[in-house]
Design a protein around this nucleic acid. Structure first.
Length: 596
RNA sequence: GGUUCCAUAGCUCAGUUGGAUAGAGCAACUGCCUUCUAAGCAGUAGGUCAUUGGUUCGAAUCCAAUUGGAAUCACCA
């Protein structure tokens, strides 16, 4: 970032002097020199050829020659097929490195606009436990927030709990019918699991009744609409909306069970929120906005009494905003909560972490707020859409019991991590608590990394067996490297080697410069991940870094190195590598152990 | 059918604003534990970047068409 900028300015200068033309900054790219060529930075000269009216090689030669004269830290240059490779003096690298160790330079990111960024994620329903799909959502949300915060943004983490609706009533009804007053305490089940059990139970009752009605001669459609349990559930919802005390009490009781269960899951997952909204508090808010739009003739009343908006000019369809009976639909409440948040926080951006099955919904939402209602903050909405998580057996379907439960999954991961750790026998001196803590770090880390390393917008395949493989591009591999470095540093300390000495190795071994360069890139990776909202970028960078470190130092004797200066330099580079690994993994919400 | 997204090694995935000879891991095969932690390292093999055309000095990357897959197009959330 520092070097690139200076080289860029110098090149722009030279080009404008030499060929008397004004270049825009974008047409000039400085990139890192590919492995197989000598040099540190590369200038692509093709864009200048039209001005220089010379061959690419001659142009590159000319620029290279002038750069040597004007930029003091450039040691040498070479030209290959129109690529101008620049080498930087070793002293310059070392200077930079010695500065970097003060950590001030670690993330040299300027103060950002401090108006908040509101990030909504998780957004569970309270009728069933969290599953693998939620896991991707939660992890993405958490990581995105971490990355934005590392970029010095003011982030507000928000969860919108969908705690009302027909699905909740189904669980409640089944509990009344066949629950026998079962509670989390009496059953030993986690609260969300218990409620989820009755949601499944409802489905069973419902199907039973449908079959019965069908055998009485009704068509399938008729049976689905007339099944008594369904009618009862609908009645219950109506009573809930009317504020029926008995129903509300049961609703509150069962939801409280669920929240207790969710809290445990969130805690295990290591995610948190600054603010939790409940849909039962906000679902009415959108109505006013719809009324307002109706008065301004932005929306219109359909002949059946429902209120709608026509988005055909924008390439979309007609959309219902309020039911004919005056009750609100999904988009009504989202219009409401968005407005609520905009007024509450005056955010520069509102990010929604929601699956790609709702792309259309968010297109509509943005369009209505921004273009139709003309709210200035409408365009601040950003839908971070992620793909589905599929299983080798196909899609997850709750009815077919192919859902991967979040708690079970985490438990499995931890158990496997523990088994592996014990098998390797490196932690025999650990206490049980320490071992559990380590297993949890490794198991949960493996899960998080496995999911976050994939580009969010792509559908991904979750193979339970492969995911717990702790080899290759996985969190345990990264954690392991970190642990090894810390162990190395502990031993150095025991030998009373002072790592903090400022270092000036006369010549940095060429290969190790490569590692230094990778480290050098870290701040810009974080910055870019912040703008792209992509934890995958951080994950893959970290893996590259670890590969690079292992490649250079795996078989390099560091503590036994006779050249004292070189030894200290390598220890410092190791220390710095470990720090970056730790920092990067923290952005992904993954802990790294000191020892494993 | 309309809209949006995806297609890179047998499998799972990377691939920076278009740049040099396409990158890992898993699976397969070969070496390496008296050596700072082998959850590792080094190596072999594996590719028509879905297809075709276009844009240009230069395309896995941008544009168009085609093929295949996913999501969505509810008075469900």
């Amino acid at each position: 970032m520092i070097f690139e900028k200076q080289i860029k300015e110098a090149v722009l200068n030279i080009v404008s002097c030499l060929y008397s033309c004004e270049l825009c900054e974008d047409s000039l790219q400085i990139q890192k020199t590919k492995k197989d060529f000598t040099g540190d930075f590369t200038v692509v000269v093709f864009p200048f050829v039209r001005y220089s009216k010379k061959s690419p090689d001659a142009t590159a030669e000319e620029i290279g020659e002038n750069l040597m004269k004007t930029v003091p830290f450039i040691k040498d240059y070479n030209v290959i097929k129109g690529f101008l490779n620049l080498s930087i003096h070793d002293e310059t690298w070392l200077n930079y490195f010695n500065n970097i160790r003060s950590k001030e330079l670690l993330l040299n990111i300027n103060e950002q606009d401090q108006s908040p960024i509101v990030v909504e994620y998780s957004s569970p329903n309270t009728n069933k436990p969290l599953h693998l799909g939620h896991v991707r959502n939660n992890l993405l949300g958490d990581a995105v927030c971490n990355i934005l915060q590392a970029n010095k943004y003011n982030v507000i983490r928000v969860n919108l709990v969908n705690d009302r609706g027909i699905h909740i009533c189904k669980s409640m009804l089944a509990w009344i019918k066949s629950g026998k007053e079962e509670t989390p305490e009496s059953s030993g089940l986690k609260g969300d699991k218990l409620v989820g059990k009755y949601y499944v139970e409802f489905d069973r009752l419902y199907k039973q009744e449908i079959n019965q009605l069908e055998s009485q001669g009704l068509s399938k459609e008729q049976a689905e609409k007339q099944a008594p349990v369904l009618l009862e559930a609908q009645q219950m919802l109506q009573k809930w909306e009317e504020g029926d005390e008995e129903i509300r009490a049961l609703w509150a009781k069962m939801n409280a069970w669920v929240y207790e269960g969710f809290d445990k899951t969130y805690k295990q997952m290591g995610i948190r929120f600054d603010k939790i909204y409940y849909e039962s508090n906000t679902y009415l808010l959108g109505k006013e906005i719809v009324e307002e739009g109706l008065n301004k003739n932005i929306f219109y009343k359909h002949e059946d009494g429902s209120i709608r908006v026509n988005l055909e000019n924008e390439g979309l369809d007609e959309k219902v905003l309020l039911r004919s009976d005056g009750t609100s639909v999904y988009i009504t409440q989202d219009l409401g909560t968005a407005t609520l948040r905009a007024n509450e926080f005056n955010p520069q951006k509102m990010i929604y972490i929601v699956g790609n099955e709702q792309n259309y919904h968010f297109d509509v939402l943005k369009l209505i707020l921004d273009k139709k209602l003309g709210y200035t903050w409408g365009e601040t909405i950003y839908h971070l859409s992620y793909g589905m998580v599929e299983l080798p057996s196909g899609k997850m379907k709750s009815r077919e019991g192919t859902v991967v439960d979040a708690d079970d999954l985490m438990e499995d991961m931890i158990a496997i991590a523990k088994e592996n750790t014990e098998k390797l026998g490196k932690t025999d001196n650990f206490t049980t608590t320490q071992l559990d803590h380590l297993s949890s770090m490794i198991g949960i880390g493996a899960l998080k990394y496995f999911i976050l390393k994939v580009d969010p917008k792509k559908n991904m395949l979750f193979n339970p067996e492969e995911s717990i493989d702790l080899n290759g591009n996985t969190a345990p591999f990264i954690q392991y490297t970190h642990a090894r470095i810390r162990s190395l540093l502990r031993k150095a300390e025991a030998q009373e080697i002072n790592i903090n000495d400022s270092v000036c190795v006369s010549l940095i071994p060429e290969q190790e410069k490569e590692l230094l360069r990778t480290l050098y890139e870290y701040p810009s990776v974080v910055k870019q991940a912040g703008t792209e909202l992509s934890p995958a970028l951080i994950a893959n960078y970290t893996y590259e870094l670890v590969k690079a470190y292992n490649h250079f130092y795996q078989d390099t004797p560091i503590l036994r190195e006779e050249n004292k200066e070189l030894r200290i330099y390598r220890l410092q580079l190791s220390l710095y590598t470990a720090d970056i690994i730790k920092h990067a993994m923290k952005l992904l919400g993954i802990d790294v152990p000191e020892q494993m």
